[in-house]
């Protein structure tokens, strides 16, 4: 670190540059990012419809109401939890398999990597449209495939309440797995060749090499990837909100924390405008992320990892 900085920081001439270069970013960041974040905590103590001047101070009333709000816990929160855990486990299982395969010397690795990653850069609205068409029960692709291969008995109304969530989860997994796979792959590629070759020469299979050598060594990166997943899973909004056109309020199956909060604040056809209450949800989301980051850090981070 020392060799990459200019020593004697506040020398004449540097101070003005530091201030000049930092000021725009700092000012914008404080006013439009940090300050609103702090304001959230303040607003959550009020009952407020946002556009009127009157804010009723109700202390922790919003939080108390939230604790008792079934539609929040049973629907939004539980869906978000299902996304994080069920979605996360499946996504990472697939990501591990793919990155494990690609980290051995496979032909066309770059091509596969590029193709796997691509769904993550497609506009999520487009992904929602595509997959809701696949799962459509009248003319959807999935049901027509099942017809075609003689499994008509398995045809379902995939967008039924109860099933729609899983359809959404499948499309979410399709969209995101490549991203996490690529991160894991980058980590796996960093494992020194020498270890792998030594094991190979001693007769270990690629599978054993993966499980016993590569995996343990990328523990930190796995931790980072899991953290990223948890953060993104809590923030996930677009896919759920724009599924099936969203003419009115998204159905329960398509409601997660982010969607619920948006509807409470800005509504859809029926606007609710409960800003104080919605802000409370935002705080819960933030708390979930903070707790998750803390737990994941405990599980995955090891300090001395020497190759």
């Amino acid at each position: 670190m020392k060799s990459s900085t200019i020593s004697g920081g506040l020398k004449k001439g540097y101070l003005s540059m530091v201030i000049l270069f930092l000021a725009p970013a700092f000012i914008i960041y404080v006013i439009l990012f940090l300050f609103p974040s702090a304001q959230s905590f303040y607003i959550s103590l009020f009952d407020w419809s946002g556009f009127t001047e009157s804010m009723n101070f109700i202390g922790l009333g919003n939080f108390r109401e939230l604790f008792r709000d079934e539609s929040f816990w049973n629907v939004a929160f539980s869906n978000s939890m299902r996304i994080i855990f069920a979605g996360g486990i499946i996504t990472f299982a697939i990501a591990f398999i793919f990155s494990g395969i690609l980290s051995t010397r496979v032909k066309g690795k770059r091509f596969f990597r590029g193709l796997l990653f691509f769904p993550a850069v497609i506009n999520p609205v487009a992904v929602a449209i595509l997959w809701s068409f696949i799962f459509n029960n009248q003319w959807g692709l999935l049901n027509s495939i099942l017809d075609g291969i003689g499994l008509s008995a398995l045809k379902q109304v995939w967008t039924e309440p109860g099933k729609m969530f899983w359809a959404l989860l499948v499309s979410l997994i399709w969209m995101n797995t490549g991203y996490y796979c690529v991160i894991l792959l980058a980590g796996l590629d960093q494992v020194p060749e020498t270890h792998i070759e030594a094991a190979y020469l001693e007769g270990a299979s690629q599978f054993t090499i993966f499980m016993k050598i590569k995996l343990p060594l990328i523990r930190n990166i796995v931790g980072t990837a899991v953290t990223l997943w948890c953060i993104n899973a809590v923030k996930e909004f677009v896919l759920f909100f724009s599924w099936s056109g969203g003419i009115s309020v998204p159905p329960n199956d398509a409601t997660n924390l982010a969607v619920k909060m948006f509807i409470t604040a800005f509504g859809r056809r029926t606007t609710i405008f409960r800003m104080g209450y919605a802000t409370t949800m935002g705080i819960v989301m933030f708390a979930v992320i903070a707790i998750t980051i803390f737990i994941v850090d405990r599980i995955f981070r090891t300090k001395d990892l020497e190759y």
Partner: peptide
Amino acid sequence: GIPYQLLLIPL
């Protein structure tokens, strides 16, 4: 680490 939902409404 801050989800933008936290600051969306005040912003």
